[in-house]
């Protein structure tokens, strides 16, 4: 196995980041099209990004919507996954299938359905509505990921905890949640990424003038594929790396301090 991974791991990682490596120089091109190697180096597309306030707003909107959607889908999905893990009951398969349904429906159909659903409660043209819609789309990730990481754990542990005198909520807090945490983290991450990159619902459920980042990138694509989207992607990537590094450092410091 070690020999296999010595070869496959670097190749796989290269595949994963190849487009990103391409994006950075592509965003610095002086030309108007996507060219690698770029047609001369220039900051003109970064200037477009800096000068047009829509990009900054789009990024902010995407972050807000993403966070809101993640919070809601975790709040709904984690308890549901725990419930599904806890007991086998008739219809469990159906419930699981329903939880996974938003993932399986083609995005444009889901977008249309969610639009009409939100319109019924008056949120069809708002960011809050978009966050709710994204929460619905993020739930399958949360449920599947949490269930997978709980699959190895036997519910009998809970009964053991109860037998040793732990109350129900304590048992959950002390035992189940920590065991499920890799799944919760993975699920939450997927839900956020799904929302951050979601286009179809964002096309339908857009507050006027309040684009999300994918919508902003998609804007005008009928007319032009501007390298500005590469500059935007580079910026977001750098932002992501910074955030993740900060989170890691803080976590490490907390562990060290504890």
């Amino acid at each position: 196995m070690r020999r296999i991974v010595a070869i496959t791991t670097p190749l796989t990682l290269l595949l994963l980041i190849a487009p990103l490596l391409a994006v950075i120089p592509a965003g610095l091109t002086g030309g108007e099209t996507l060219a690698l190697p770029p047609e001369g180096l220039s900051l003109r597309w970064w200037k477009v990004l800096a000068e047009d306030p829509r990009w900054g707003e789009a990024l902010l909107n995407s972050l807000l919507v993403g966070m809101g959607a993640t919070v809601v889908s975790l709040a709904l999905g984690v308890p549901a996954a725990i419930g599904l893990w806890l007991a086998r009951f008739p219809g469990r398969g159906v419930v699981l299938a329903l939880c996974a349904l938003p993932l399986a429906v083609p995005s444009v159909t889901a977008a249309l359905a969610l639009y009409f659903g939100l319109a019924a409660i008056g949120l069809a043209n708002s960011l809050a509505g978009l966050a709710l819609a994204h929460a619905v789309l993020g739930v399958p990730f949360v449920v599947i990921a949490v269930l997978a990481s709980l699959r190895m754990v036997d519910p009998v542990l809970l009964r053991a905890a109860a037998a040793s005198g732990a109350t129900r909520p304590a048992a959950y807090a002390r035992i189940v949640i920590p065991l499920a945490s890799p799944g919760i983290a993975a699920g939450g991450l997927f839900a956020f990424a799904a929302s951050f990159d979601e286009l179809m619902v964002a096309i339908f459920v857009t507050a006027p003038g309040a684009f999300t980042l994918p919508r902003q990138m998609y804007a005008g694509i009928r007319e032009q594929l501007s390298p500005a989207i590469f500059a935007a992607a580079t910026f977001v990537t750098v932002l992501a790396i910074t955030l993740m590094w900060t989170a890691e450092t803080l976590a490490r410091r907390r562990v060290r301090g504890a």
Partner: peptide
């Protein structure tokens, strides 16, 4: 998309 013809020729 309308952006592609130029892209195709340039690429």
């Amino acid at each position: 998309s309308g952006a592609q013809p130029m892209q195709l020729v340039n690429g």
